[in-house]
Simulated assay, not measured.
Amino acid sequence: MKLWEIAHSRTGDKGNISNISLIAYDMKDFELIKEKVTPEKVKDFFKDIVKSEVVRYELPNVGALNFVMYDALGGGVTRSLSLDKHGKSLSSYILEMEI
């Protein structure tokens, strides 16, 4: 199953840090997402861009996980040569993760 089947996502950035949220469409799927989408799996999934740690924060009352990925935007908006300097497309990409 792909994450997009049970969740949606939003991203944000600050400097060279990307922030990705995963929000379950249905609260009954939150535990599955929490079990399957670990910081280690997210770091491995984004291994080509994340050069430092991934920290996960849980928001159980809203059925969401928030991942903060350090050193993930090629130096940040003013330094990156990436076409997506803010990392907005990362929210779509994480939804392709197989769980």
Results as ranks from 00 to 15, higher is better:
K2A: 03
L3T: 02
W4P: 06
W4E: 13
I6L: 03
A7H: 06
A7F: 13
S9E: 03
T11Q: 15
G12I: 15
D13N: 15
S18L: 05
L22H: 12
I23G: 05
Y25K: 00
M27L: 14
K28W: 06
D29L: 02
F30C: 00
I33K: 07
I33S: 09
I33E: 07
K34C: 11
K34V: 10
K34P: 08
E35W: 00
V37G: 10
V37T: 08
V37F: 11
P39V: 10
P39S: 10
E40V: 01
K41N: 02
V42L: 08
K43N: 11
F46V: 07
V50S: 03
V50T: 01
E53W: 11
E53D: 10
V54I: 14
V55R: 14
R56T: 15
Y57H: 12
E58N: 07
E58R: 04
L59E: 07
L59D: 06
A64R: 07
A64E: 07
L65A: 12
N66D: 14
F67G: 03
F67N: 03
M69R: 01
M69G: 02
M69Y: 10
M69A: 00
L73G: 00
L73V: 05
L73R: 01
G75V: 09
T78P: 01
S80P: 12
S80F: 11
L81M: 07
S82D: 12
L83M: 05
L83F: 08
D84Y: 11
G87M: 11
L90I: 13
S91Q: 09
I94L: 08
L95Y: 00
E96P: 05
E96N: 10
M97E: 04
I99H: 11
